[in-house]
Design a protein around this nucleic acid. Structure first.
Lengths: 141, 141
DNA sequence: ATGATATATTTAGCTTGCTAAGTAAATTCG
DNA sequence: CGAATTTACTTAGCAAGCTAAATATATCAT
């Protein structure tokens, strides 16, 4: 009985996150972006010039993943890389104007999807949901 | 204020699903499996011999993705493919013994992760969580 | 100072996931 | 019956994400 509930939660979570990913993917395509790149840009909006290592920590993904994402974003003119002056090992990542211009449209896409996701869920329920998700998050770490 | 809650839910959801994916990935590696392959096998346990098209619908992913997953699982000896006798276009997918043997260890991995995820969350809260997730799911479709 | 170790990034190679375009078989319709 | 359409799958090519191993620079300890 309990196991069944848990299992449905696992399955639901799986289905939901896959579905959200696909939906985001579709919306972001209009901006010439891939899923995940929005999160990287988000980090840069709240502070340019951080290192790939810092991005890797903030986005919870491995350094080679950052290398690839950064390469792709650079080729598309959204960011540029500059070697650190003090430490020649580190690369610092900066937004181009083109990259800065994406903040508004991306935030608007996020909001659109959030609204759709949380439709017909009350404020109290949203708060509860957030609490439960924070609990789950701390369970995993 | 409301927007902030929504936004945190989006971010939390993102972080949680990425984290779960990484954790599953690590556990499944011991079985020589990749994340996602477990779900495909799960479908087959509840009924062998379905077509790639049916897999594609059940797993909510595109036919080329199924082609790739099936190819990889076949090369590793977990499944085999057989052309349909009536319709030469369709491929039917079957479990090998090696594939059938994975059911127990995979279920046990799932359960282990579910327990960790839902630790310290009461049965009432789990039920509520499930309801909210079902609501979100139907919002997206 | 120099040899060993640690850190930041890259490269190679894999799978999941996608789209667009191709192939082959079945079905439909004139 | 035969041409057009639909259906099932494959191929090619891309990005996210991973691991393992390579490279290059810094730092630490002797």
């Amino acid at each position: 009985m309990e196991t069944k509930v848990d299992c449905e939660i696992r399955e639901l979570f799986d289905k939901l996150s896959a579905r959200m990913r696909r939906d985001y993917s579709e919306s972001l395509r209009e901006l010439n972006l891939h899923v995940g790149q929005d999160n990287l840009l988000y980090r840069l909006w709240s502070g340019d010039g951080i290192t790939q290592m810092q991005l890797s920590e903030h986005l919870h993904c491995e350094p080679p993943t950052i290398t690839n994402m950064v390469k792709s974003l650079e080729q598309n003119g959204f960011i540029y890389r500059k070697r650190d002056e003090k430490d020649a090992r580190v690369m610092r990542i900066f937004l181009t104007d083109k990259g800065k211009e994406l903040e508004e449209p991306i935030r608007s896409i996020w909001q659109k999807h959030q609204e759709k996701l949380l439709e017909s869920i009350s404020t109290e329920e949203r708060l509860l949901l957030r609490r439960l998700m924070k609990q789950m998050e701390s369970n995993l770490f």
